[in-house]
Design a protein around this nucleic acid. Sequence first.
DNA 1: CATCATTATTGACAATTGTAAACCCAAAAG
DNA 2: CTTTTGGGTTTACAATTGTCAATAATGATG
Lengths: 325, 325
Amino acid sequence: MPPDITAKQAGSDKDLILANVALLYYGEGLNQSDIAKRMDVSRATIVNMLRDCRDRGIVEIRVNGDMLSSSSLSRDLCAKFGLEDVYIARSRSPGKGKADRKETLEQVGRVAGMALINIVSAGDTVGVAWGETIKAMCTAVPRQPVEDVTVCQMIGSMVSDRVPASEDCTIRIANRLDAQCYTLHAPASLSSSTLAAQLRSEPMIASQLGRLQDLNLAVFSIGNTDHSTHIVSAGIASSAELDQAVCSGAKGIVCCRFIDAEGQHINLPSDERTVAITVAELAAAKKKMLVVAGEDRAEAVLAAIKGGLVTHLCVDEALAAAIVA
Amino acid sequence: MPPDITAKQAGSDKDLILANVALLYYGEGLNQSDIAKRMDVSRATIVNMLRDCRDRGIVEIRVNGDMLSSSSLSRDLCAKFGLEDVYIARSRSPGKGKADRKETLEQVGRVAGMALINIVSAGDTVGVAWGETIKAMCTAVPRQPVEDVTVCQMIGSMVSDRVPASEDCTIRIANRLDAQCYTLHAPASLSSSTLAAQLRSEPMIASQLGRLQDLNLAVFSIGNTDHSTHIVSAGIASSAELDQAVCSGAKGIVCCRFIDAEGQHINLPSDERTVAITVAELAAAKKKMLVVAGEDRAEAVLAAIKGGLVTHLCVDEALAAAIVA
DNA sequence: CATCATTATTGACAATTGTAAACCCAAAAG
DNA sequence: CTTTTGGGTTTACAATTGTCAATAATGATG
């Protein structure tokens, strides 16, 4: 046979076999041995084919996200705070075992990943924050193209040992949705407010920031003011500023900005040195998806809700319970 | 706790757990034992939960139908006959083993089921024939709602030992697509042409037949004139009429009507006694999906293609090979 | 409050599936 | 012509998953 003619299509001919095997296995429910007998190969080959099918997207396994927001607990939260949807992660039988933070975080991330594709719709401009929670989420967003979506980074970049490259979250999410991607080519926090102001008015940065004024969906997390190490070490605020913020009633940190118990922005010197979406802009987004893990953030989440910064919520079960109480 | 409040939502609370388990298993790739440990239940319970997830549609496993129409063989067929897409079923290593007809039929059915949801688009009016091939297909159509679809039965009903209730195919397909469903409340074949004519002009039947004049998609199979038993026993044509048709050059039977080698309708007395879409109406449909299994139908399929009755084709590999040759 | 019916859970076992090292074979390189 | 390399396949074994009958929990009913 002439290899030049079939060469280009050789991969596709294999795909035909793969897809047919997938249909027999997943569609018909035959077992691998029977398929192997039919196809006259060893069962191991079928195993390999099926793995290929999954790897190459010929079969796709997806979880229906709706079920994550239809429990009575989530409805209680919706009703109590006027939220549109509350997605709840439950990775461990409550009470049993130590609720490992990493474990909880990952499960909230997975739930948020599912939730995201439920919430985003065609034509949306989506703002994405970063942080360990958002990071956990973005690895779990299923690959599902959505028409005409734009994804923007809401907070400037930053190197941190706890969180990998900040743009990474934005890029990953954009990839999964087949969306246009705009990263923010600036540090989140600068050493001088003058420099930050100059940077913000640089055409390139300015246009990126401009997009954040009209978001259809903002995806972000919230930190509380207790575990100060992260905030200070990341250079978002100095230790003194943090103290000052707490004295002024700061209950949470959203996109590098402090908010009080009512969810109102607390203006601090550090705001001037920051390149990120403002609280007002965040509040202006049509849909606001807050993703948080850990009971200890209940106060911060409540503050954000009161301030009208949340329409959709993704939390673990313990945090959800803490918020209703 | 008050059971009346939570009663309505009890099912949903279980769903939350199911979805979270599904996420851990299918999303994260944890094994059942680890999940069982986390949730503090036995592994068997996790097995049951995962089965529930699949049964209740919380997880969905789908095969990408595109791969079934991207082989070199299918492209050859497209190019040679100007078809839009050719989906190929390959259930058995070619040459090896007896190509069990039942097996082939089922695989073609599965492939056609996948193909259908690829081909149907929002707003379509879909005509569905019936027969053993279409029957095999309709059980394999994945559940996937499509906006604003109407499904119509193209051939009147009939009792047959080989094929279950004729409406069944139409109804099933409509269900899987969440579509409006119109069955044809008349026998496919009547004893007198007068009665058939009267029936066709009954308002209720007439409106059903009217819908068949403007189909966006027709899904049907084709029989050859060899295996006469089926045609005669089903009362579509008498033995004498069949002989007459074959003498006139009939090469295939489509929706109870005979066509010649060029795909042209052969008018016979039996046509007058039939309640079904006409060949002309079939030809007028925008998309025409022919589903056939078995090498021996190559001639019939070729006839249908020549007559412009086919835009999309679903066949087994052996038949595909026979057609190109 | 006991009883029956129904449903969910479990442990023990059987079946299926995944893995890894060995093997084959063809094409590219020495 | 031999060696090497890389893909794909296989065999034998290990791990995971599915099943089923027994048991517990639930909850409706007399």
